Amino acid sequence: MPPRPFTPKVVTANDLLEGDVVYLAEDGSWTRILSEAALLTEEEHAKARLAEAETQPEKVVGAYLTDMKAGKNGPEPVHFREDFRRTGPSNYAHGKQEDLQHV
Rank of each mutant, 00 (worst) to 15 (best):
H102D: 14
A63D: 04
L16F: 08
R85M: 09
A37C: 07
E82V: 00
A37N: 04
P75K: 15
Q56N: 13
D27G: 08
N73Y: 12
V61C: 02
S90Q: 01
R86Q: 04
E76N: 04
A63M: 07
Q97N: 02
L65D: 01
E82T: 02
A38L: 10
G28W: 09
T7W: 05
V22N: 06
E26G: 00
E58G: 11
T55K: 04
I33C: 06
F84V: 00
P89M: 07
R32M: 03
G62E: 10
A46R: 12
Q56Y: 11
V10G: 06
R85K: 10
A93L: 06
L24S: 08
T55Y: 02
T55G: 06
A13N: 10
L65Y: 08
K59S: 05
K59V: 11
G71H: 01
G88P: 09
A48I: 03
D83Q: 02
K9P: 01
P3Y: 04
G28I: 02
T66G: 02
V78S: 01
S90A: 00
S90G: 00
H94F: 14
T55H: 03
I33V: 14
A93I: 06
V11L: 09
P57H: 10
F84T: 00
K9A: 07
E98P: 02
A63H: 05
T87S: 02
A13E: 03
T87R: 11
G74V: 02
A38N: 05
R49L: 14
A63G: 05
V10A: 08
E26L: 03
V60P: 01
R4V: 14
A63I: 07
T55P: 00
L39Q: 09
E82G: 00
R85V: 01
A48M: 07
Q97Y: 03
G74M: 04
N73R: 12
G95W: 10
D67R: 15
E76Q: 13
R81T: 08
R86W: 01
N73S: 08
K69H: 09
K96Y: 03
R81A: 08
A51K: 15
V10Y: 13
V22W: 00
E52H: 14
P5F: 11
T66V: 11
D83N: 05
H94L: 12
L17D: 15
T66F: 09
A93D: 12
F84G: 00
E58T: 13
E76M: 14
G95P: 09
S35L: 01
L40C: 08
Y23W: 11
L16G: 08
A48K: 15
E54K: 00
L39D: 03
P2N: 11
Y23S: 11
A13Y: 10
A51C: 05
E43H: 12
Y92C: 07
A51P: 02
F6H: 15
P3W: 01
E26Q: 09
A25R: 03
P89Q: 10
L100P: 12
D20T: 09
A93Q: 04
R81M: 03
N91C: 06
E36H: 13
V78P: 00
V11F: 07
E42G: 07
E44P: 10
V103H: 14
A51M: 12
V22F: 01
L40N: 07
L100K: 15
R49M: 15
K47T: 07
